[in-house]
Write a protein that binds this DNA or RNA. Structure first.
Lengths: 247, 247
DNA sequence: TAGTGGTCTAGACCACGCC
DNA sequence: GCGTGGTCTAGACCACTAA
């Protein structure tokens, strides 16, 4: 604000670069800024918000560090989308026991539509009457049956998904959410416990009844914190492990 | 470099702020900059390195984001130490099943000195002849026996530790490493699997034989990546869970 | 009051991608 | 060649801490 200095009315709250950040975040959450084209340049944003370019830069750099946008020198700044460029392991922490990164393959067992359960409604912040799509699939890692997954999606966020044939579901679901339903998963929270194998695990993972397995309960969220997917993965950790970096 | 511009010889590699960062990192790893007193101010560092204050700031800000240093307006910048200020949950992801944060208590079962095993030597990058201290303890969470821990420490990094009485060990070991041995844990990698309870787990955690439990294998490192602790935690996840944020 | 980091501005030059 | 982000500088004022 070159002219009006000396008495900044503290119009919004907090530093300018945070206000710029929040404004951009709102725009992105509202679905402007399609993932295929760049945000306005730093210069234009600076002019629009009436701040210096460096202030916009700081906001964008912060968002880039949080994986919300991605910046390319010479091309521009984009909403960070799921696609070939994105690190596929950011949301996939199951690696071979030696730490090697291998991507899994998937086979869908079933896809059904039904009323939400009480637990699911709580996790996904849905009304008790809401409908959901349930996907059940097995994932292989290094040619071994490794993970039995149950995926719960709110029907209203993914209209028409239940009508798809189960063979049409890709391995990388987050890309599907983004391309077909404009739902971008930006973050997730996982809750990990150990459980004993039940009948389903025996059938689909080839485990012995009562064998220990890793249960991962994930809630995936969009930018504004709306939960969009509940995923429960049951993993045979004989040849795998979940890796976590504490930096 | 105000005078000599126009032909920066690209003396080191990469941007200046990274060179500054690496230089500071080296100094910290070498044990200069005790955790009790601030680093030189931005002004002084800028003069020392012959760069602008903003360049030093960028290096320090980056290090602050990685939890390597901590900055206090009006006081200065400090090597980020374990202590009352530090977030105790950064290295402790076991929470009550509802997500509540409670700190554990600890009871040491034994502390012994012995030769390293082959597996341990590999994980801690020790010679096969090296000696280690082994600590075994039980941790309670919410007044319930919850975790059985085996901690392996290289003897040469922690001289005299094996002579301590086991009742002298504090609950927060990383603080001990730092205060008594000038070893600061900056990061850790965890590898999580599910296992069946064995005799030890039955004895100390009160689990049934074969019950599923969570096994967390952690390697803690100092700034320069030297592994300084191997810790294997076996957790009863009946009332707990391991939480992980994917941002 | 002096000194620290925090915010903000302004403008330079460089490296890169695209047309 | 033009526009983008990446790096670097310089200097202003503010907020906080400590002596």
């Amino acid at each position: 604000m070159p002219e009006t200095w000396g008495d900044r009315p503290r119009s919004g709250d907090g530093p300018l670069y945070r206000q710029v950040r929040e404004a951009l975040l709102r725009e992105i959450a509202q679905g402007r800024h399609p993932v295929t084209e760049p945000l306005p340049s730093e210069q234009k944003l600076a002019a629009r918000f009436g701040v210096a370019q460096g202030t916009v830069r700081r906001a964008l750099d912060e968002m880039a560090r949080e994986n919300l946008v991605i910046r390319h020198q010479g091309r521009g700044t984009f909403v960070h989308a799921h696609g070939p460029d994105r690190d596929r392991f950011h949301f996939f922490h199951l690696l071979a026991a030696d730490g090697e990164r291998r991507l899994p393959t998937s086979r869908v067992l079933s896809m059904t539509q039904r009323r939400v359960t009480q637990t699911e409604a709580l996790a996904l912040r849905l009304s008790p009457q809401a409908r959901v799509v349930e996907i059940k699939r097995v994932r292989d890692l290094m040619a071994r049956r490794a993970v039995l997954e149950l995926i719960i999606l709110p029907d209203d966020l993914f209209p028409g998904l239940g009508d798809l044939n189960k063979t049409q579901l890709p391995n990388t679901l987050y890309q599907l959410y983004q391309d077909r339903f404009a739902v971008i998963v930006h973050r997730a929270v996982e809750k990990i416990t150990a459980e004993a194998a039940g009948p389903d695990d025996v059938t689909h993972l080839g485990l012995d009844r009562g064998a220990p397995l890793l249960r991962i309960e994930r809630i995936a969220q969009t930018l504004d914190g709306t939960p969009v997917e509940l995923r429960i993965s049951r993993c045979d950790t004989t040849h795998l492990a979940y890796f976590s970096d504490l930096l």
